[in-house]
Design a protein around this nucleic acid. Sequence first.
DNA 1: GCAAATTTAATTGTTGACAAAAATGTCAAC
DNA 2: GTTGACATTTTTGTCAACAATTAAATTTGC
Lengths: 235, 235
Amino acid sequence: MATRLKKAVQVEQRPGAKGGPHGKRGIDLQKVLRERIAKQEIAPGSKLREQELSTEFGVPRALVRETLCALEQRGLIERIPNRGAVVVRLDLSQVFEIYDLREVLEGLCARLAAQNTSPESWQDMVDMFEGPMEEYVKRGDYESFLAGYAVFRRRLIEAAANPVLADMLDSIYEKTQAIIRRIIILPGRAEQGLSEHRAVLAAVCRGDAEAAERLRRENMRSGKDYLKRYQSFVL
Amino acid sequence: MATRLKKAVQVEQRPGAKGGPHGKRGIDLQKVLRERIAKQEIAPGSKLREQELSTEFGVPRALVRETLCALEQRGLIERIPNRGAVVVRLDLSQVFEIYDLREVLEGLCARLAAQNTSPESWQDMVDMFEGPMEEYVKRGDYESFLAGYAVFRRRLIEAAANPVLADMLDSIYEKTQAIIRRIIILPGRAEQGLSEHRAVLAAVCRGDAEAAERLRRENMRSGKDYLKRYQSFVL
DNA sequence: GCAAATTTAATTGTTGACAAAAATGTCAAC
DNA sequence: GTTGACATTTTTGTCAACAATTAAATTTGC
């Protein structure tokens, strides 16, 4: 599994493009900005000027304004009246707060996934975690490991079949994406993560909803513990 | 405890009013609309016209637009390009989805509240649940019962001291507010809710975080079960 | 040299008019 | 009576200019 980091970096403007849930309005610009902020291509603390974005992406300023409004609602930027918008800077306490949330939400996600699906539908994930993922960890190929984890996580969300939950998970995951990349390289974390993910997958496979939730929560908890232990190195 | 349904129905326009987190921008109009939608004073399915709101509240249309954008992000309205905004209509499956979410989120909230606070700070709640709340249920004064419950819930959220959690709880609670009012009047529900709330409060009081979370989850679960059993009467 | 007051620059917020799109209503042809 | 094209209406989307606000820079007074 390659890293597939290729992405659309240009805003689509053709009238027929109605990819998103909102028709052609704003979804493109919003998506681009969300990705850039999550990847920290736009640094925390930096300003987002309406005119600038308007000319750069060739969209009306009113649309930029709505996009900023949406990003503000998602907690990615902060807007001060007459002052403009800045990308929020997460401090450590907020990261821990978010981890508490992820613990219960990802747990619920695993439980629902276990309830809703049959073992057969997870065969490809089992294969991935048996072979390739083991390799990635051994080789220290964290990029591929993260990509594999992202796929597994996405499958759990789809299987849970709860749109509101999916939206919440997305909105908090994108805030911690940068942190996760720094946790995964901590000594022993990838190995432990792998074994925990396998346990979750096994529980989901055998339809054991309670165990799936508990194991996924323990997985999140241990990630948080790692962060706590190494916090001076991570931030 | 009276029902205190009095609310600001007129948008404040004086420049000095900076009550909300966004300064004076839009927070007033958004709040008013959110309350009206939650109370179903604006019926599900009804249209929200920009010009109409603009003239009614005396705010610029650009501001109406941003407010609608925020409401859309919160999932309260749906906007179709060139067609306008309509208040979303919850179907039963979505209500159950939201209850799954509330189960884990309110559970987390109770756990954190138990961790963060001392028993003394809950004395007023204990008093309320011993005396007045019992009375309300006996008399069938559901309005006061709901108001008391709202206070307890708000206290739990404050004690949890997790802003992101607080925001999520608010955003899903306002969607089910109308449903909750119909559940509470189901036969035996108020009585059972009262005893469950007491159990949660007792666990929070003695700082038993695990029990607080478990009991609050059971409380949510039993509410969902009630809804499931009586769904043909509720919707 | 430092502090307070004033000016200046940059940016957002507001306004009104106009364009574009979608639904609705009308009319004629079959 | 129904179907199709066409005009009308309603509503959102876009644009450019202007006002208001804030922060920074400059000047002035001591």
